[in-house]
């Protein structure tokens, strides 16, 4: 565990002043990205992240069992976000994807927007692996434990996801001049 996280975990266990705010500042942005990547809804992502932080506070002395705070938080946020995504159901997810499609898809979109859109179209399992790897910085071993899959499954899901992202981004890039002409 990195020393900074180790010290933070110690402060959390001792309920030191400012420890919870430091936890928020250090992890909230990345946890939100993971939660959003999984839920595809801002409100659900925020609720999932809040659930995780509150659970950390409630864990109290049980936090002493945590060996890797980073992996623990990202595993927790993955579970909270996946639960919320399931509660929404597949129809809501399709709606969300459709809304995103309508909102985007113009020739003025930057690469970031196209990447975000392509990411949203990946299956939940692949989105989760990508986010845990990129945002959480988890190893494949940690991801496998977190998702309860084998190491090979975690690694291959990640590779398939990136290849699919690359393909869909390239396809969109090729479609763009045609779409731009159609708009004119």
């Amino acid at each position: 565990m990195e020393p900074r996280t180790d010290a933070l975990l110690k402060d959390l266990l001792e309920a030191r002043e400012g420890a919870f705010e430091r936890l928020y500042n250090q992890f909230a942005p990345k946890l939100l990205r993971t939660a959003y990547c999984i839920t595809r809804r801002r409100e659900d992502a925020e609720d999932a992240v809040q659930d995780v932080f509150v659970a950390v506070v409630r864990a109290g002395a049980a936090l002493a069992e945590v060996k890797n705070l980073n992996a623990y938080l990202f595993t927790a946020v993955h579970r909270a976000a996946a639960r919320r995504a399931k509660e929404r159901g597949s129809e809501e997810q399709i709606d969300a994807a459709r809304i995103e499609d309508q909102r985007a898809g113009s020739s003025h979109d930057g690469e970031g927007e196209r990447l975000a859109r392509a990411l949203q179209h990946l299956p939940l399992e692949q989105r989760a692996v990508v986010s845990l790897k990129i945002d959480g910085g988890l190893t494949f071993d940690e991801i496998a434990t977190s998702l309860n899959v084998s190491l090979n499954t975690a690694a291959s899901r990640y590779r398939y996801a990136l290849e699919k992202l690359r393909t869909s981004m390239n396809a969109e890039l090729q479609d763009m001049p045609a779409k731009g002409n159609a708009n004119v």
Binding site: R42, V49, L115, I134, R166
Partner: peptide, 18 residues
């Protein structure tokens, strides 16, 4: 290399939340 570049792009993406 292109997947490596994609990883970097993913790491730099922004989310309007929080």
């Amino acid at each position: 290399p292109d997947l490596r570049a994609l990883e970097e792009q993913l790491a730099g993406r922004r989310v309007e939340a929080g």
